[in-house]
Design a protein around this nucleic acid. Structure first.
Lengths: 189, 189
DNA sequence: GATACCTACTCAAGAAAGTGACTAGTCAGA
DNA sequence: TCTGACTAGTCACTTTCTTGAGTAGGTATC
């Protein structure tokens, strides 16, 4: 049960609709968790059933009505309990790593392409995250913001996302380079 | 279906028993995938049923018999197919990130402790991975090994694991520091 | 000589995550 | 005016992961 806590944490920023959450948890801004719309709607329904969030209908013209959710006191208490409990260790779980592990035994060509594609995605994300960080801290410099800013949670997780994507990009490029070079070396023999 | 490919990739190193795989996929050396023993035994059974791996019984004295598995040609072909297919994007999925996101709204004390604990674990892992890398490359320096070494897949994924754990450690310490400082600042007011 | 851990697995059940298909109105561009 | 994208969801199903318990002999520790 981890998505539920991720949803609760996301709702600390204020009211959101399922749709808004779905966008936040999708590729792009998902710097701390990822989930599909269906999962989120399902989770919100469960959370509401348990009284951890409440939704209110917002009638809209020229676009479907929506429900905005916010965390209840019971929800806060649940988050508190979660934060105090031990965390499971985290692992990278990535198709590309599996492919690289096998890359010296299977055709490397496709893997090289994917590494370069992934590097480009990671680069785009580092820029996006950098921009997000700038927006969040506004005029203040980072030290100052982290010390006195109000909502630093999202900033801190975004920092982790940024570092992750940077490492991702560097590693992908490094590995792609190595695999390319090895092809050349082998071709020469 | 990714665990199956992780298993196939792991078996490229040679024959392994379910038990050996279980240790490799557990905390510690799981620098590219993680799974519990039960999953691995189940996956091996399925893979054998589909003819992607074959097992042979090895009789042992003074310890239970074991089955050693290796990849068949069909298994290699499946890995090849997998390597050529598109990869899903990867995400960090970590309880601690969720907690940090919420840390400015819930009690930060427990989160700080967990961050410092995690930093220590990450530090231990960086050392372990560093040692593993040294072992794998032997006398050669890294460039040389990556260019001409035989089995570089595990080395490359271990590099990723090392970078990940380093970033993990640094981020955890940074965040723990920030949260501690904020407590002091708040206490002063 | 009792306790605990290591090798080597198996079975069952449950929770969490992921996939595919579908509804339905609005708006912008070709 | 047709196409496609955007908002805002729902339903059903499958796969994957996690948890807990159990077997059974051997070895090391105190």
């Amino acid at each position: 049960m981890a998505l539920r806590h991720a949803v609760l944490a996301a709702l600390l920023d204020g009211e959101h609709s399922g749709y808004q959450l779905a966008k936040a948890f999708d590729v792009g801004v998902a710097n701390f968790w990822h989930a599909l719309p269906q999962q989120l709607y399902a989770e919100l329904a469960k959370l509401e059933g348990e009284g951890l969030v409440t939704g209110r209908e917002v009638v809209q013209e020229s676009r479907p009505n929506k429900r905005l959710f916010r965390v209840t006191d019971a929800g806060s208490a649940e988050l508190e309990r979660f934060a105090a409990a031990a965390s499971k260790p985290s692992f990278i779980r990535d198709d590309l790593l599996v492919k690289v592990r096998a890359a010296d035994r299977v055709g490397a060509g496709a893997v090289i392409e994917q590494l370069e594609e992934r590097a480009a995605v990671a680069e785009a994300k580092t820029e996006l995250f950098g921009e997000l960080l700038r927006q969040m801290r506004g005029a203040a410099d980072e030290e100052e913001f982290l010390l006195r800013g109000e909502r630093i949670g999202p900033y801190l997780t975004c920092l982790r996302g940024l570092a992750f994507e940077r490492e991702n990009r560097d590693w992908c490029l490094r590995v792609a380079g190595v695999l390319r070079q090895r092809r050349t070396v082998r071709a020469e023999r």
